[in-house]
Write a protein that binds this DNA or RNA. Sequence first.
DNA 1: ATGGTAGGGCACCTA
Length: 265
Amino acid sequence: MKLAPFKLATWNVNSLNVRLPHVLDWLRENPIDVLCLQETKQEDSKFPYAELKEAGYNAVHAGQKTYNGVAILSKHDMTDVEHGIAGFHSIAGYEVEQKRVIAATISGVRVVCLYIVNGQAVDSEKYEYKMRWLAALIDWLSGELKKYPNLVLLGDYNIAPEDRDCHDPKLWEGQILVSPREREMFAKITALGLHDSFRLFEQPEKSFSWWDYRMMGFRRNFGMRIDHILVSDALKSKCESCIIDKAPRKLERPSDHTPVMLTIA
DNA sequence: ATGGTAGGGCACCTA
C-alpha cells in the first residue's frame, strides 16, 4: 500500500470487441489505476493487449468464446495472478470452464474481479447453479481474506442487495437478482468482513448500474444496482468516494452496464 | 398475454 489516491473501477462491457472504443475513451477521461471488466466474450488470442498497453494499461484476461470472460487492466505491475475459484470445477453438468474470476495483487492490494452467475429465473437450474457457485465463492474468499487483508472484490454480482437497489421492488419481488436466497448469499459475503463501498457514502436516490436494453430501461431509469465494489475491513476507513458514472450508458451502442468507481486514500 | 433489445454467430442461447 503506497499510492494515494488509488482508484479502481468495475464495468461489465457486454463484449469487449464491441466496447473497446468506449473503454479506451473512458480511460482517457478517467485515468484510474485499475479497471476490472466482465463479459469480454472473447478468447485470450483476440484480447486487445496491444491497444491497452498503448493506452498505458497492463492486462490479464481469463477469456472464452461467446460467454463470460473477465479481465483486470492496471497501470501498475500485477503479481500472483490467479484464475477461477480454486478447487471449483464443475457442478451438475455445467461447463467446467466458465471464465468468471480473475485476481491479482496490485500495489499491495488484492484485486478480485468477479462475474457472478446470472441465474436466469428463480425456478431454473441456472439459479441452483448460481447458489452453488456462490457457496464455493464464499468458501474460497474466506481463505483469500486471511491471505490478503487488503482486498477489493469488484464486479457484476447479479444481485441487488436491498430494495432501494431496484427501480420497482414490488414488481420484482422474489424475482431473479433480488430474491431472498440471492440476498442471503450477498449477506454471507459481507459477513466475511467485506463492505459495500457505495453505501459508505451518501448517494442519490435510485442509483443503478445496469438497465435492461428493452423497454427503454435507461431512459425511464428502470435499473438495478448489481455491480459492486466491496472492500475488506483493513481498507474500509481508507475509502474516500464511490460513484456510478452514467456517462458511458448514454453513448451510442452502449453496454447495458455502466462503470462503478472507488477511490482509496 | 412472457412481450421488448443486444451480442455472438448463424440456430438459438444468454443476459
